[in-house]
Amino acid sequence: MKKWDYIIFVFIAVLSVACFVFVQSYTSERGSVVVIELNGQIVKQLSLNEDTSYVVGLMNETEDYNEIVIKDGYVRVIESNCRDQICVNTPAISQVGQSIICLPHRLVVRIDGYNQKIDGVSR
């Protein structure tokens, strides 16, 4: 163990905490919208307060799918045919800013707040 090793360890710890704080500033309140994005585009929005299950995909040529379940205010990916199953193993989310990501399927499932910033009101 040498001098710079300790410096690096401290750096890593600090970096991790800094990221955590930064992320926390975005994710504080309990969310109410579950936003499902495929390839960066929103494909579906669901209420966090209604227990439901929704399958993304299965209609394209590759038959990739992710099954999303909303229950008791938590969202999880319960099943998927992706290779690494990271999305399935990610713990359930419920706070604004948290997300579950399936990289091979380009899927992002995230929570958004009740009062999202509105760009305009049509009347």
Binding site: E37, G40, G97, S99, I101, R110
Partner: peptide
Amino acid sequence: ILNSVYIVS
């Protein structure tokens, strides 16, 4: 790629 800031979490 995913155009998502949320992955930073």
